[in-house]
Simulated scan of single mutants.
Amino acid sequence: MTEILEPENCFCQLASGSKGNALYVKGGETAVLFDCGLSGRELERRMAERDLDPTTLSAVVVSHEHTDHVGGAGVICRRFGIPLYITEATRTGSTKKLGKTKAMDIQAMECGKRFSVGSLEIHPFSISHDAADTSGFRVTASSGAVLGIATDLGIAGHLVKEHLSGCHALVLESNHDPELLYANPNYPWPLKQRVRSRVGHLSNEEAATLLDAIDRSRLSHLVLAHLSEENNTPDLALAAAYGVLNGSNTSITVAKQNLPTPVLSF
């Protein structure tokens, strides 16, 4: 049987949405997990679906303290003996969710300051969300390939555009359709306001506007992430993105809550 080899630089959105998020990124010989809102068992199951080996992980990097991003991070770090990279404010807000932190190797991360995990250079940057210190990430492999990650943000200012420009691949929030959100009888008005606020989530149209504002000359893959299961549909998210990317060589994948994406190269 012919062995299936991962690309040198690749990523896989293992889960995306309000019930749990996890993103596998590999550059050269280094594999890192960005966020883990899944149980340890579920994370391993999903990685196995894509022939990814959790024992090769070098670290977990957390974007913010909401349970759907940090809930399983402590379990994974302890299980595989790998460090957790987290800002001090996010750590403070995650203590109970992380579990036995004394048994973990916790590394301080600071937005605006690059750090390296093996062959990956990671540059966290501040984004606008209703958490203590939410981070987006610009990840550069030793080959020079760049992946941008921004999945929980209410607005996309100059800093976000700067860090997402010139990437070879992007994981970008396309959370909701405003009309579906406002018509949703299950969402009380304060929650609708929170989603649409400057510290909430990007709509499909806002994600498309952000795409239109950045340098996409090297962009080969776009993953639309954190879609609301109640206030969005893949077709609506894709239509907004295609409105900007139509005619380009960029492929678009919609990340799902219950199914990993294919393993994509960058």
Rank of each mutant, 00 (worst) to 15 (best):
R46W: 01
C36T: 07
K19R: 15
L52K: 05
N9R: 01
G28V: 12
A22D: 05
S18M: 13
P7E: 10
S39L: 03
S18D: 12
Y24H: 14
T30W: 04
L38S: 06
E29M: 11
D53N: 15
F11S: 00
S18Q: 11
L33I: 02
A22L: 07
R46L: 08
C10I: 01
A48V: 04
R41F: 11
T55R: 15
Y24I: 06
E42F: 03
G37I: 02
P7F: 10
D51V: 02
D51K: 13
G17N: 08
L52Q: 09
M47W: 09
L43R: 03
P54I: 08
R45T: 11
E42D: 15
L38W: 02
L38H: 03
M47N: 07
A48L: 13
L57G: 00
G17P: 13
P54Y: 06
G27T: 10
L23M: 04
L14I: 09
D35K: 10
R41Y: 08
G40R: 02
T56P: 01
E44D: 11
A48Y: 03
N9F: 05
E29G: 12
E42K: 13
A22F: 03
G27H: 07
K26P: 07
D35W: 04
Y24C: 10
E44T: 11
L43N: 06
F11Y: 02
D53Y: 10
C10T: 03
A31D: 10
A15Y: 01
L23C: 02
G37R: 01
G27Q: 09
M47C: 11
L14C: 05
E44S: 11
P7L: 08
S18R: 12
D35L: 08
P7T: 08
T30D: 06
E29Y: 03
C12E: 01
C12P: 05
L38P: 06
R50L: 08
N21P: 00
M47E: 04
T30G: 08
A22P: 04
K19T: 13
V32G: 09
E8I: 14
S18V: 14
T30L: 00
D53K: 13
G40C: 02
E8C: 14
G27M: 09
R45H: 12
A31F: 12
C10L: 03
D53P: 07
S16T: 02
C36S: 11
A15P: 03
P54K: 05
D53H: 11
G40A: 07
N21R: 01
A15I: 02
N9W: 00
S39Q: 10
L52R: 07
T30R: 01
E44H: 05
Q13K: 12
L14S: 05
R46N: 04
G27I: 09
E29V: 12
R45F: 08
M47D: 04
A15N: 02
